[in-house]
Amino acid sequence: MQNIERKVPWNVIAESVRGSSHKRNGLPNQDAYLVTKLEGADSSLILAVSDGHGSAFSFRSDQGARMAVRICSDLLTEMVRESSRSQNRASEIKRAVEEKLPKEIVREWREKIDKHLKAYPISPEELDVLSTARGDSAKDRVSGNPYIIYGATLLAALITDSFIIYIQLGDGDILSVSREGEIHCPIPRDERLIGNETTSLCTKEAWRDFYINFQQLIDQPPRLILLSTDGFSNSFIDNRAFQKAAKDFVDIIQQEGPCYLKSNLEGWLNENSEKGSGDDITVGILFQDLPASGTIETNNYTI
């Protein structure tokens, strides 16, 4: 019975909206996400989400976020493929993710930025905007660490039929809902991250701030996994109101079907931003057990 359940393929619905404060201030949506469905026997799925910093220092963070989700997804894909013939596949991937992935992500992200900066050097206009917002000393700070310009967080989940790996750097939330409807936080909130400050890909030795949780699917897998940028949880009055959203997503999928959720999600997230945090919001929902009527197509996609 358990084996049959674990063979049910995972599906994903993801959406990202520009924050209401970003609309007021003429800023772009600085979040990004990427869904990668791996072909193969176990239908592995990767969801990566990134939140580019809204600070004036990070004026290319939308691009930094897009780089982050691409690099993370590609590296995880490579690790899955490399271990595909191994007899100890789960432990091999676990070791690779824990020992190599954070450093590899940071290294590749920085390499990509170096190339981008070479192709598109910081313009005088960008520096003028920065110094107007944060004073002339801000230019020195940026030239001392140009990665700040692209600063972004990273959340990811790799799901196979036998294990799940959760990855997090910086703010944002990962929740799972059990078959019994209980909420779990695979990666607990980092108590240091208050007041709009976050650990980030742009900080020195950023790999040290990654949190990774490997979860073997010995028993029943979660009914739903939610990855969201902090604009989502910050839009609710408290944590309980936020966690209720994850439970409600389960109910909506079961009662109304995933197509209903997919078609309404953007409107809901816009309401969250307008009446709540004002921030960009990205939500990725991974789930199993689709009702017979209402299958959605999960392809690789991104923003």
């Binding site: 910093h53 809204g54 004036a56 700040i148 600063g151 709009n196 400050e197 980030s200």
Partner: peptide, 18 residues
């Protein structure tokens, strides 16, 4: 009151807003 996230390394105590 403007929510603009930034990296921890990029600010000093009490100066996390412009």
């Amino acid at each position: 009151s403007s929510p603009a996230s930034q990296s921890q390394e990029n600010q000093v105590s009490g100066l996390n807003i412009p």
